[in-house]
Design a protein around this nucleic acid. Structure first.
Lengths: 229, 229
DNA sequence: TCACAGGCTTGACAATTATCAAGCGATCCG
DNA sequence: CGGATCGCTTGATAATTGTCAAGCCTGTGA
């Protein structure tokens, strides 16, 4: 692991206030690895061996039951994932796979638990990070429980539009992955896009043009407490 | 606040390891109050003033959007709720109402944040509590995303059956609340019970009899990672 | 170049869930 | 007691979503 990569991780809020000695001790036994696309990193029922940090690429957290599968969330660099699981010494609860070739730092979960007991600042940052992740899942839960598929898509597009800034937005993932994230089938995602055409949504492959934000918002009814900037 | 009530709170894992002085300081400005049934304690967009601890009664956390409403979770005594919100100084993210007459201890959120910085053990326990709450919402999210309404009901009944031990179980909440928790309408809950009749589910008001666990399980396909004991 | 695989779309149909309306039975209260 | 309210149920119908099948388009590799 190069020093430049170490600095990238160190800059994350979660680690930025740690004592140097504790940070170094935590990294003992960790390794930075590159995975190709479409590789399953771990399964939801596996015991949590590592805290993962996505340094580069894209990772999907998903879950399975009843022969069905659904995306829980998408991870973008640089960010940690499965922190909660690493802290409690149980199963991962979610499965993970790479969507693209990805570089991932894996820190033994045991080290994380030791660091939490040893380093005050890390414990405090872990509290804030967990609270933030908690509210993230709460938002996802509200989203799927209180909105129809078309509404979820409309709100997703509005959020992406604000995030990306320009007047046309580009979907950051394949449509089938977007469908799974929205909790619908790929077929219904296609139909949802058709439904949104009268609201000024122009689709050209992964490029989306929102030509009537007002109308789209009147359908989507965005909520500050669900749709993150 | 009586000493006996203080001891009940002190016994919660979250507080049990705190230094006495920190525990007392945290309680400054808190108050124990009794609310009648059906009272809204706070709304999801309100700023978080208090950590709440349900000492007696029953509380529902719910959310609203689009003129729709859904139960997020039910709180049973003795337990804290909205810990994550109290720790980050933002909106509650969920609304709360009493389902029955309830006794609730309210601790100023500011005190909680101070306690986290001052008391190591409390910070560590907060990490564990938050991780556990996080996995709780993850399970709820998987449940609604990967199962149909009938499957969710079947699994709910199996969990209640194991929890309550006897051969007949009693629903702990009104059926309309159960419906909202399962993410379906009261009408469809009635129909879901009818659908489960061939699987040995006998309904008599709030009393449910499971006469064929095997068949019910084959339909429910329970999962350790979703259905908590 | 051409065949092929994979992602996406569309159509037809089925399953799931919601909505609206009506009615039943228990409880509460004047 | 009588009337009203409320929770629950049932029926009829509509909206939403999923499944299966087929076809289109693009990029890839023989």
């Amino acid at each position: 692991m190069r020093d430049s990569e170490k600095q990238i991780v160190r800059a994350l809020p979660l680690f930025s206030g740690m004592l140097e000695a504790n940070f170094e001790a935590m990294l003992a036994g960790s390794f930075l690895q590159r995975f190709p696309a479409t590789v399953v990193l771990f399964s939801e029922s596996d015991l949590t061996d590592f805290l993962h940090i996505l340094v580069d690429g894209q990772v999907e957290l998903f879950a399975s039951a009843n022969n069905r599968e659904g995306t829980m969330t998408l991870i973008k660099p640089v960010a940690t994932f499965v922190l909660a699981s690493a802290l409690v010494d149980g199963a991962y609860q979610m499965s993970a796979r790479t969507l693209t070739s990805s570089q991932i730092l894996m820190i033994p979960a045991e080290n994380i638990r030791v660091a939490m007991l040893a380093d005050r600042d890390f414990a405090h940052k872990a509290v804030l990070e967990l609270a933030s992740c908690y509210h993230g899942v709460v938002r996802a839960y509200k989203n799927i429980k209180l909105r129809t598929g078309v509404e979820r898509l409309a709100n997703y597009l509005l959020v992406q539009h604000r995030r990306q800034g320009g007047d046309t937005l580009t979907l950051p993932v394949e449509k089938r992955t977007l469908a799974s994230m929205l909790g619908i089938t790929p077929e219904n995602l296609s139909r949802a896009f058709s439904t949104l055409k009268p609201y000024g949504v122009k689709v050209d492959g992964p490029k989306i043009d929102l030509q009537n934000i007002k109308d789209l918002e009147s359908l989507a009814k965005p909520s500050e407490l669900i749709d993150t900037l």
